[in-house]
């Protein structure tokens, strides 16, 4: 730190110069629009004549049967989408990281690089790739299932109301499993060898060592991954849009808040776009994400025990 003697100094303009560009772009393009969106959700009317209506839009969204049915459907789907990630993505990620963190394992670098490949691909690619692979017309999935004698299980999963959302959730898990894997892997590597050696002298090895020693030590990382997953899921849009379209078919069964926001804001088919209701939905997403982040920061993170090595 440049702590000069505490005397009257001239204004240090260079600090302002260093901060100004980032602050300006960030404030004008991100923070002000965020508040602008919150503000728009309190208004109604044409772009020229906006009328302040208080919480009327929120009442419409939650109370008007036409809106609330779509909203709760999207919210519930979004919750289910999140549950799939927490229940499938994170355990698989932890398992892979645990396997990779064995220093004697050969080909570690190869596995790590390969498993991370889907994460760098765009949603558009991932959505279409899986749409083609699961397509009953092409038959890659049925012929693969045939190899293991399970052909009868095949169904056009993305086209069935009851399976589509779960299938998309699993596709998203497939894409992002690399992130929990990497973060947990890093956390496992950071555990000092002395702790593990001490455990081994006490006869705690293998699985028991993982559950009793390593898992408690990586809990903070699991917390971070959970909140990242939460924010990512409640903000998701691209995968559903590129594989199912803006209508989030079949019959809105894959509609999540992101696609609902897009349809409301831009309109679809015969309905015209509605910026105020779009802003209302975006505000609801903002509050949901904020609630999740606060719950994590104040409810979970502070209670997790951190160990200093």
């Amino acid at each position: 730190m440049t702590v000069q003697p505490a005397s009257k100094k001239p204004i240090r303009w260079h600090i302002a110069v260093f901060l100004a560009p980032a602050l300006l772009v960030y404030t004008v393009v991100m923070i002000l629009p965020l508040f602008g969106t919150l503000q728009l959700s309190l208004f109604r009317g044409t772009p020229e004549a906006q009328v302040f209506v208080g919480l009327e839009n929120f009442r419409t969204l939650l109370g008007d049967p036409r809106w609330s049915a779509s909203f709760w459907n999207a919210l519930w789907n979004n919750v289910w989408f999140f549950i799939i990630h927490m229940a499938v993505q994170n355990p698989i990620g932890i398992l892979l990281a645990a396997l990779l963190s064995n220093p004697r394992l050969r080909l570690r670098g190869f596995y790590r690089t390969a498993i991370f490949v889907p994460t760098i691909l765009s949603f558009v690619i991932v959505g279409f790739v899986w749409k083609l692979i699961l397509s009953p017309i092409w038959g890659v999935a049925p012929s693969l299932l045939d190899l293991v004698g399970l052909k009868s299980l095949f169904a056009p999963w993305l086209g069935k109301e009851e399976y589509a959302l779960t299938t998309l959730g699993l596709i998203s898990v497939w894409q992002f499993v690399g992130i929990p894997m990497m973060l947990i892997y890093a956390a496992l590597l950071a555990i000092p060898d002395e702790i593990l050696e001490a455990a081994e002298y006490d006869g705690i090895t293998g699985m028991a060592q993982f559950w009793k020693i390593k898992l408690p030590l990586i809990l903070p990382s699991i917390g971070i991954i959970s909140v990242l997953t939460f924010v990512g899921n409640f903000n998701a849009f691209d995968l559903i849009y590129s594989s199912q379209g803006a209508m989030a078919g079949p019959n809105f069964s894959t509609d999540i808040l992101g696609t609902f926001l897009y349809r409301t804001f831009f309109g679809f088919q015969l309905q015209i776009g509605d910026p105020n209701m779009g802003a209302t939905i975006a505000s609801m997403m903002f509050f949901i994400i904020l609630a999740g982040v606060c719950l994590y920061l104040f409810g979970i993170q502070t209670r997790l025990r951190r160990y200093q090595f």
């Binding site: 965020l34 503000q39 903000n235 997403m285």
Partner: peptide
């Protein structure tokens, strides 16, 4: 907080 939520504005 994702910037996407400010899209409308």
């Amino acid at each position: 907080i994702p910037i996407r939520l400010g899209t409308v504005a």
